[in-house]
Design a protein around this nucleic acid. Structure first.
Lengths: 164, 164
DNA sequence: TCCTGTTAGTTGAATGCTCAACTTCAATAG
DNA sequence: CTATTGAAGTTGAGCATTCAACTAACAGGA
């Protein structure tokens, strides 16, 4: 039997980890609330609009949305269903693969995005980007990229553990 | 009328911000899932146990739990209610202030924490701490502390905008 | 003492997310 | 060409979180 020793965090690492947890809670809550109050959409919905806006034809497959946000396919289905009801997105079966579904941003979605982008970017600056040294912010980006890379490498799609 | 110009993020900032969003989603989901599967508690519940374990008497007022985690009081009430049902926490009216409620970790809570801590710390290392240069991790801690400080300064308790 | 405002905490409805089961279609192995 | 396996997406139940309304208790002044 192998000894199951825990390699604890030292006090500094512990403090940084806790700062991350608390800061993230606060930051996400704030950005989400700002978008909801000003434009009636959540941060997650906003991020979907951003991704659609970057595509030619403002269209993306459901699975691609899920993959790029690392959300479960189920979650994306629920969110897009709501957004479709709100008139921000149109959905239609993909012509080349009848299993697939293309989500397309409507004009209404586009104009909402245009308005919401100001609120969002201003918030991200005020509560995050402009608070830090450029180098520190870059370092954080490096860390978070490493996190994604590692977790994605370990688990190509995540569907097997998160969806079914 | 003042011009409402948006100060957009440059491509690098945008990439770092997106890395943060995606990485956080992945990291939180993973740590939460690992704790749930191994011990049947969420990351939020785990964090409450940690905070209680650090107090003499393993006791903390509800409001203090909420403040230290930056969760809404309502959320803490719901979570603690569940944990009490599960036998991890005991709740009783505070002797000095009859409005207050003291949450105390039970022995069962303590032994669960003992077991879960290994899972948690191992996960935090594997998916986060050990992936980054020490200096980068410290930088990230600095950024997240700045985030907390700024948002807390702007909004001493958050109860006025989040609860109530 | 009583009135007002504030703080602590709870409640329940509405909303959003997760999880597992399911349908439909595609790919490919025989 | 068909039988199996895998992929894309949806569904609904259950659970967690938010939001607004509420009760109870303290605090401080008139």
């Amino acid at each position: 039997m192998s000894a199951v020793q825990t390699h604890w965090l030292d006090p500094e690492q512990q403090a940084d980890w806790r700062a991350y947890l608390v800061g993230s809670t606060l930051l996400m809550d704030t950005l989400d609330r700002e978008l909801r109050q000003a434009h009636g959409i959540s941060l997650g919905e906003y991020e979907i609009l951003v991704r659609l806006s970057e595509m030619p034809g403002r269209t993306l497959r459901m699975a691609e949305i899920a993959a790029s946000m690392r959300h479960s396919r189920s979650r994306v289905t629920h969110t897009v269903t709501r957004m479709e009801k709100a008139g921000l997105i149109r959905r239609e079966t993909s012509p080349d693969d009848k299993r697939g579904v293309d989500a397309t941003m409507t004009d209404q979605g586009w104009s909402l995005l245009t308005a919401a982008a100001h609120t969002h970017v201003t918030g991200v600056r005020a509560h995050f980007v402009d608070l830090a040294e450029r180098a520190d912010f870059t370092a954080m980006g490096r860390v978070m990229n490493a996190v994604s890379d590692q977790l994605v490498a370990e688990n190509p799609t995540f569907d097997d553990i998160r969806d079914h």
